[in-house]
Design a protein around this nucleic acid. Structure first.
Lengths: 196, 196
DNA sequence: TCCGCCAGAATGAACGTTCAGTCAGTTTTA
DNA sequence: TAAAACTGACTGAACGTTCATTCTGGCGGA
C-alpha cells in the first residue's frame, strides 16, 4: 500500500499536532515537522500555503474530533443536572485522554490565530442549526433548574475549572480519577444551579 | 533630575512588561524593548544577563505587586464566606484594572519559564510563614464552612472561573461590572461551600 | 522518454547577543 | 583654578544563528 496524497497530508497534520503541542508554535521549525512526518520540507508547502495555514488546519482537525466525541457521548434522555454532569464529565475525560489536543487548543485560542474562533464560539455563530450542546443547555427549556446568570458566567463556571484542572493534570500535579471528575462536575453544577 | 540607574532598570522593566503583554515573548525583539524604553540595545544587557533573565525579573515585579495588592485588601475580621468573596472580588478587580499584568502572568505561567513557580505555588512552598491567603482559607480553621474537597479542586473552582472571565473581559466580550464580579464570587462559593 | 512529485540544499530576513568606540562626569595634576 | 587623564555607563553596527520559504535536480510511474 503506497502513501496516498490524503495520507501524506494527514501525516503532516499529525506530526504538526504533536510538535505544536509539545514545543509550541514558535519552537516548532517547519524542518522539524517535516522530519517527524517523514517528509521533505518542500512537501509541506505543497499541501499548505504556509505555516499559518497548517496551524489552522490542525485546529480544524482537532476541533472536529472534539465536537464529534462530545456529541457522541450525549444522551437525549437526560435532562438538567444529569445532562450537565454528563457533558462536563465526558469533556474532561476526552481532553485528559488527549493531552496533545488539549495543549494545542489552549495554545491556539490564546494566540492571535484563535482570536476570531473564540469570538465565534462565544457568540454561538455555530453551524446552521444548534450551536453547542452546552449553550443549548444554558438556554434550553431545561434551564429552569439554573440560576439566572449571564451566559459568560455560565461559561466561566463550567469551562474555567475544567481548563484549570486539566492543566494541573498535564503538569502531573493531579491525577484525574473518576472520583475527582465527578466532584468537579458536581461543584460546577452547584455553582450555577437554582437555589432549592 | 537625571535618570538614575534604578530608574533605567525600571524603565526597561516597564517597557518589557508592556511589550510582552501586548506581543508575547517571542514577538518582542530586544531591539524593540530597547527603543520603547528609550535605551540602547546594549544597555539592556548591562542590567540583565539575557532576555530570559529579563522575563523572570518582570515576573518578580508583577507578582510582588499583585501579592501586595491582595494582602492589602484583606480584612482579618471577616471569616468564611465573606472572606472568600472579598478575596475573589479584589483579585478580579485588580487584574481587570491591570490587564498587562494579567496577560503577562498568563503567558509566563503557561510557558517553560513559569513551570517551576507554578509547582511552587501549588505545593505552597511559599515564604517561611503563611503561604497564600487563599490556601490559608481552604485549610484554616474556618474551613468548616467548606465541603471537604481536595486542594486542587478548591483551586480550580476558585481560579478557573476568574481566569476565564478575565480573558473574556480582555477580549472585550464581557464587561466586568460590580454586579458580575459579585455573582462570580458567589457562584464560586456555592461550588465549594458545605451543604447547609 | 516524459511528467509530476518530492527531498533537501539554498536563500534571505529576523533574531539575540557582543563589543569597540563615544562621551559625560569625576578625579588628578600642575 | 584649569587642563589633562581617567572612568565606566552607554550606544548601535556587526556577528552568528535560526527560521520560513523557495528553488533545483532527480526519481518513479506511465
Amino acid at each position: 500500500m503506497s502513501v496516498t496524497q490524503q495520507n501524506k497530508s494527514d501525516l503532516i497534520l499529525y506530526a504538526a499536532l504533536e510538535q505544536f503541542a509539545e514545543n509550541g508554535f514558535h519552537s516548532s521549525p517547519v524542518s522539524q515537522l517535516a522530519s517527524l512526518a517523514g517528509v521533505g520540507v518542500g512537501s509541506i508547502y505543497r499541501y499548505f500555503k504556509d505555516k499559518d495555514e497548517l496551524i489552522h488546519a490542525v485546529f480544524t482537525m482537532v476541533d472536529d474530533a472534539l465536537q464529534k466525541a462530545i456529541t457522541a457521548s450525549m444522551n437525549p434522555e437526560l435532562s438538567g443536572r444529569s445532562e450537565f454532569i454528563q457533558l462536563v464529565t465526558s469533556l474532561i475525560q476526552y481532553l485528559d485522554k488527549h493531552p496533545q489536543e488539549f495543549k494545542f487548543l489552549e495554545q491556539y485560542y490564546s494566540s492571535p490565530y484563535g482570536a476570531d474562533k473564540k469570538r465565534a464560539k462565544f457568540l454561538c455563530e455555530g453551524r446552521g442549526g444548534s450551536s453547542n450542546p452546552f449553550v443549548d443547555l444554558f438556554f434550553g427549556n431545561k434551564a429552569k433548574s439554573l440560576k439566572d446568570l449571564p451566559l459568560p458566567l455560565y461559561l466561566a463556571m463550567t469551562f474555567g475549572p475544567i481548563i484549570f484542572l486539566l492543566r494541573d493534570s498535564l503538569s502531573g500535579l493531579v491525577t484525574l480519577d473518576e472520583a475527582l471528575i465527578q466532584q468537579t462536575a458536581e461543584a460546577s453544577w452547584n455553582a450555577i444551579k437554582a437555589e432549592n
